[in-house]
């Protein structure tokens, strides 16, 4: 295996670590589409930065995108809490509104410039080893630093906020009444999701991010009975899909993110079969009189 191939596997694995952990919480909170919504909602941020600075693929662009990603998730959270619309409708209101704002901004002020999300912030993992930055004189792939840093921050985040995150995902009303401040933890989770989604889009592309947020978590849920086990299995599935996907993509000369995505779904299919077999072989719960 070449060094670049190994680098792609490590970057994908690190990315899947952060995504699988946060994605497990999103899946259980029925907010699985949140990363996809963020991927659209960032457009006005990119346009705004272009209008202000004339730049369209810089670090400032990433900050603009992050700001609107945060606006999307926090707006969603606020709308949901008002009780005016249901949770899924709140998300469906927020991101098309922001995306439309971005489209309007382009057509009104920047129709001459070529701006779209793909060219501005969406990277491709295939080229990730080639985009390097110098770190103490050594050329290190930018994506390795970003996904490694993100994975570390997410692991620390979940370890530190384990109790309020766990409790408010399971039973939000209890988390609130027992003084665990579940709403604070829930908002912190949304902010973490928006932040990770934007930096991950920049490193590896949207399809892989959305896949990594949800598919390993859904696979792990089928095989586990506690949240701790679910997170460990989800991260393992993410790394397995990264390794297998990269190898198969090279073997079949196909798209790396596409193949990693398909392998993830195939692993989900295998887990579904395994969980059926496990359930059938287990005895039913003993009723309590």
């Amino acid at each position: 295996m070449s060094a670049d191939a190994m680098m792609i596997i490590v970057i994908a694995g690190l990315l899947s670590t952060g995504c699988a952990i946060l994605g497990s919480f999103l899946l259980l909170r029925r907010q699985a589409l949140l990363p996809d919504a963020v991927s659209h909602a960032v457009l006005p941020g990119i346009v705004l930065i272009f209008l202000l600075t004339g730049q369209r693929a810089s670090l400032v662009t990433l900050l603009g995108a992050t700001a609107f990603g945060l606006l999307c998730v926090l707006g969603f959270d606020w709308l949901r809490r008002t009780g005016i619309v249901a949770s899924d409708a709140a998300l469906a209101l927020m991101f098309p509104a922001l995306f439309s704002l971005g489209v309007l901004g382009i057509s009104r002020f920047a129709s001459g410039a070529h701006i779209d999300i793909d060219s501005a912030i969406y990277g491709d993992i295939t080229f990730a080893p080639l985009r390097t930055v110098a770190l103490a004189g050594v050329a290190v792939p930018r994506s390795l630093l970003i996904t490694g840093g993100a994975a570390l921050v997410i692991v620390l985040f979940v370890v530190l906020l384990w109790r309020p995150l766990h409790t408010s995902t399971f039973d939000p009303e209890f988390a609130e009444t027992s003084g665990l401040r579940g709403q604070v933890a829930s908002r912190a989770l949304l902010v973490a999701v928006a932040g990770l989604a934007v930096v991950a889009f920049d490193s590896v592309g949207a399809i892989l991010v959305v896949t990594f947020f949800i598919v390993p978590a859904a696979t792990a849920r089928l095989l586990t009975h506690t949240l701790g086990a679910m997170l460990v299995v989800a991260v393992t599935v993410g790394w397995l899909a990264s390794w297998l996907g990269q190898r198969l993509a090279v073997g079949f000369d196909s798209s790396i993110p596409g193949t990693i995505g398909l392998v993830s779904v195939a692993l989900l299919g295998l887990a579904l079969l395994a969980s059926r077999v496990m359930r059938r072989s287990r005895k039913p719960a003993t009723p309590v009189s």
Binding site: L161, P164, T169, E173, S178
Partner: peptide, 28 residues
């Protein structure tokens, strides 16, 4: 809470649910 307010398919064992009853005394 009402059963509807609790995430139905959350991976958790019975004893882990009961342990949450001690969180108000132990905090984060």
């Amino acid at each position: 809470p009402q059963q509807d307010a609790v995430a139905k398919d959350f991976p958790i064992t019975a004893v882990q649910v009961v342990e949450m009853g001690r969180y108000p005394h132990r905090g984060w």
